[in-house]
Structure formats: C-alpha cells, structure tokens
Design a protein around this nucleic acid. Sequence first.
RNA 1: GCCACUGUGGCUUAGAGGUAUAGCGUCGCCUUGGUAAGGCGAAGGUCGGGGGUUCAAUUCCCCCCAGUGGCUCCA
Length: 646
Amino acid sequence: MISVDIGEGESHEYASGISAGEVIKNVHGRKSGAVAAFVNGEERDMSFRLDENCKVEPILGDSEEGLYILRHSCAHLLAQAVTQLYPDAKPTIGPPIEHGFYYDFAMDPIGDEELRQIEKRMKELVKQNISIEREELDNESLREIFSSNPFKLEIMDDKIGHDVGSSAYRQGDFIDLCKGPHVSLTSQLRWFKLTSTSQAYWRADKDRESLVRIYGMCYPSKDGLKERERQIQEAARRDHKKIGKEMGLYMINDLIGKGLPVWLPYGEILKSEIENFAIETEEAYGYDRVTTPVLGKKELFETSGHLPHYAEGMYPPMKMDDGEYYLKAMNCPMHHLVFTNSKRSYRDLPIRIAEYGTVYRNELSGTLAGLLRVRMLSMNDAHVYCTLDQVATEVRSNVRMAQEYYETFGFDDYDFRLSLWDPDNKDKYIDQPENWEATQNHLREIMDGLGVEYTEAVGEAAFYGPKIDIQFRTVLGREESMSTIQLDFAAKERFGLSYMDETGNENGEVFVIHRAPLSTHERFVAFLLEQWAGNLPTWLSPVQAQVITISERHKDYAENVRETLKIAGVRVKVDDSDNTIGKKIRMHRKSRPAYMLILGDDEMKGGSVSIRSRNGKQKNGVPLEQFVSDIFAEISNRTKDLSLVE
RNA sequence: GCCACUGUGGCUUAGAGGUAUAGCGUCGCCUUGGUAAGGCGAAGGUCGGGGGUUCAAUUCCCCCCAGUGGCUCCA
C-alpha cells in the first residue's frame, strides 16, 4: 500500500501501482475535467503508475497547464491525420501556442481543400477513440523508429538526454517523439478547428528546409471554441483597415506603391492632433525640436553603423554627381550631428532633440499590413544626450511619459520587454560584449527599480544597444512593438560625441537614449482605431459635431450653429441635404463624429441643439452656448470618454 | 522575399465556358420629413493586368500586380 496526498491535507491509501488517473477519478469523480496529473508537482500522464508515497493533483483542461497539454495532444492528432493522408509527409515539430497549436511538416504545400480533409480525418480519429500511450525507449530504438525522418533525428542529436527525454507517444499507427504528458484518448480532443496554413523554415532559418505549417485552435469545451470564434469576429469589426476606409482616413494606391499610405483629410486631422499633443508634451519634458532631411550621404550611414548592420532595411543608394545618397531609415545619425554642431557643456546636459521624422524602410513586401507595417513612417522620435549618471533619470522619465500617453489615449493592455543582444549572432550587433553587459545590466536595474513587470528577449536589441520595448497586441492577438526606449553606447565613439565637463576637459562619455513613446503615426493610428473601434475621443475625432437639419427651413439656423462652433475651434460639418433625418444619421455614422446635433423647429425656437451620441442616446433642448462650452472643455482637456449625453 | 487564400462598377456582393447580378452610395424628379432603409427613375463595370487554350474566356492554364493570414523581420 502507498499513501497518496490528495491535497487539502488529506491522504488516501491505495495499492501500489495504481495509476494517477484512477486516484483522480476516485477523489474527484469521473467528470473532474482533468486531462493529466501533477505527481509531486511534476506533470504526468493519467496512466502514470504510482509505486511510492506521493502527492497527486488533477491538471484541469481549462488551467494553463491543461490547455497546453490539450493543445499539444491536438497537434499530435493533426500529425496523425496528416501522415495517414500524406504518407510521405515528415512531421517535424508541433508545439501548443496561445489559442491552439501548430505542426510543421516537410511536405508539398497544401490549400484550403486539403486543410478541410485533414480536419475531417482528425474528427474521424476522435470518433475512433484511440488510446494515447507513453513508451519509454532507449536511444537506439528511437533512432530506429524515426530513421526515415531526418528532422526527428536532428532533434535527438541535439536534445536527447536533455529536456526531451527518451520517450515517445503512440496513438494507433502514429508515433511521435515527445516528452509529454498527453491526454489518454483522442476522444478528449473534440473542440478544435484547423485555421490556416503557412510556410515556415526548419528551425526558423531561411537557409534551411521550407516546411508547411498548419495552425489550429483547440479548447476544452464548445463554449471556449465559440468564444474564440466570436473574438475573431469582433476583431474583424475593429480592424483598423476596415475602419480607416470607412472613416476616410487613408488610402493606398498601387500606382504609388504598397506600404506607402496616403493620409486623407480626416486622417491628416487625426495625425496632427497626435503630433500637437506630442509637441506639447515634449516641450514640457524639456525637448528641443528640429527638422532633418529625408536623405543623406553614404558616409553618414557608414559612420552611424547603419550600412554594415542595417543595410537590408534600407533602400539602395541613389547615385548623384557628388556621391551616393540613401533615404534615411533612422533619424538618429542626423540628430547626432545636431548635437556635435555646437560645443556642449556639462551644464547643457541632458540635451533632448525631438522630431516627428519621416523614415523609409525596405520591409519585405510580404510583411506589409495596412498601417501597421509600412515602408514610409513618421516616428515620434527623439534622442537624449546625457552622462551615464543621468541615464536612469532619463529612462524613467521616458517610461513615465509613455504611461501618461497610454492613459490619455485609453490603452491599458501592454507589456514591457527588455530587449537584449544575442552574443551568438554577433554580425547583427556592434561587437563590444562588455558594453552590452554593462548597458543591459543598467537597464535591468532601472526596470527593477521602477517595479514594473517585464520579460527579457534575447536577440531583440538594436544593433547599437539594448532597449526597453513596450509591446501591444493587435485585436487579432498579434504582438507588435509600440514604444521603445533604447540605450546607445556606440554613438559616442562613432560620432565623437563629447562635452566639456566640470574639470574643463573634453569628455566623450555621452550616452544616447533613442525613444519613441508614440511609435509612428502609422502604427499608433492603427492601434488607436482598434482600441476605440474608430469611436475616438472627441479631441481626436475628425468630425467633432455633425449637424443634421430636419427640413429646409432649418438651414439658416444650422449655418448659425456651424459658425458658433467654428469660432470655438470645434470641427463641425453640416448636412442640410433633403434626405430624411434617419437616413442622414445612418450615413454619418460611418465617419464616426463625436456628436450629432439634430436641428428642427424646437431647437430653432429655443436657440438650442439636440445632441445624439454614438450609442444612440439623446439629450434634447441643450442651449447652444452650453453645448459649445461643454464640448470645448472636452476637447481642451483631451477627455477620454464622451460625456455630453448621459 | 517565402507559403496559402482572395481580387466582379465608389462600397458590400451573386454568378458561371456564350462579355454579368443585387443592395448601398451617386445623379435627377417627387417627398419638407423628429432619430439606424420614404417613393420613382437614370447613369455607372473591357469581371486586378498581360499572355495562352478554345468557335467563344470574367470563368480553364501560365506569368505578373495588389490584398488577407502566416513565416522571416520589425516602429
């Protein structure tokens, strides 16, 4: 007999050799929702045999670990279906991911029709209720089993004996190298759906084999799956590309080129509001503004290090009669030259140089997406020149600035990431390991001091230094960098940055902080539209008041209202066409004005307006003067939520 | 750049080897209307572009271009 601790201080006696699953069934019942078990805190299969005193707890399907197991098992189910339908397909790796799983296969590309067939086969395998069994095997047998799959062999070369262990999981005719655990029956995998295919490279290396990646989503219940499908629908409704078109914010034209959005009049208004807010804020934070050219000589970018380290991100050079010129991909080299243009004293530092600079980046055509990834972008850029002692204060103030912006714009879902260099990939970075270590540790200490949570990411640094990135998610769950604060230890040498210190000596220890809290106009607007589903705060709305007349005799009064609002600086439009009022309301909803003002006999008589909010709520007979002062306050305070109609 | 899918009047879309739907929008007339489709009428498309197969291609094939989702990359 063994004693099994079943949690909450209780223990039960069982015959030695009982499975973890039987204990869970005995304690928690048949419908516990468990997919696997923790045995002494280790994840184990339900079939795991207990032969000594231990602690057993269920891993529920809707827990983080449980979802992971479910999705991992679903990936195996996919691989089983694929290898049945395509005997030549070679499974490589298939991990669980946020909403499901994927599996990469070496096989010929497949389309939607094939995807449906594979999904159908998976459903059949679920119906057959195949048991999934763990097999402990030695390396020899594993090599024998996977002898025709070079990918699995390569995994074994790298990992066996480490975290993969020497185990495999068998379900019917399919066996996969895996450390587990897994669910015990294919019938436990009911709520899944294959979503898409894509091309991927073996080990994410574009010089290696091209693989077919199949994505699926998987949930423990029908509700979970339905909820995710609903989320995807909601995401489509908030898509900045759809909203941007409806609101007439920007266009992209083939003849101009892809990734090169044109800001239309309403988009230009939105962009200007954001930029004015940035200028105001940076003024308060002690920044000086400059404007630098969009192109510069080859030697400039050689000096900065962009040409050796960032050449693929830049457009090819233009040959002129006096040398080669490049479109700039970054503003920093020019700002550095602004810094060196004058003799600087320690009394001047930190010097903060700001510019909404437009840069050009040669993004791969396949990565371009609406406003989120473009080839010409206007960055909320600035560079802070300071001593090492001043770095912490400046970084902290930039984190604070970013957070103040997020508060005003209504963003509350973001993560900090400390982006580090990759010592194994030195080509991408300036090769000064001790500087990397020092600056990375410095940023880490600053972050720890701020008490914010963050993750660390190797290989995400800029070529000239580590950075703090603030990561957002698009409505579809894709992660993108929004803000960035980068610590540059290389510019001082490359550009000979220096200042006169307290001792009267030239001091070259100038650190540069590159920062862009508001990202770029393009990306920021995309996130803003998704955040608000296009229903922007009043101060950002391209149309703040849309006047709608009821009949022709209200035209003069509407004109009167328009003039009054315009004088107060409110962006106002009048629709005095002879359409019905219902129709006019319906039409103008698309451009999402902050408020609609309905004007008829009652309003004309009383010198008032009837305010209609975006959600259809209405406040009638508001004196015009009252509305003007209320909306003026909302605009000048940059109020987040619209509040003139309760 | 790579893989898959998609591309029909300004927008959303139907269709299929015989040059094509419908709704919204636009324009005109009627309606002067109180809160998410008032009525009638008209204009508007060489079905993304170019080749090929065919008596005939928007439909089938090939090559481009663009969009979408991924890969890679990144603000």
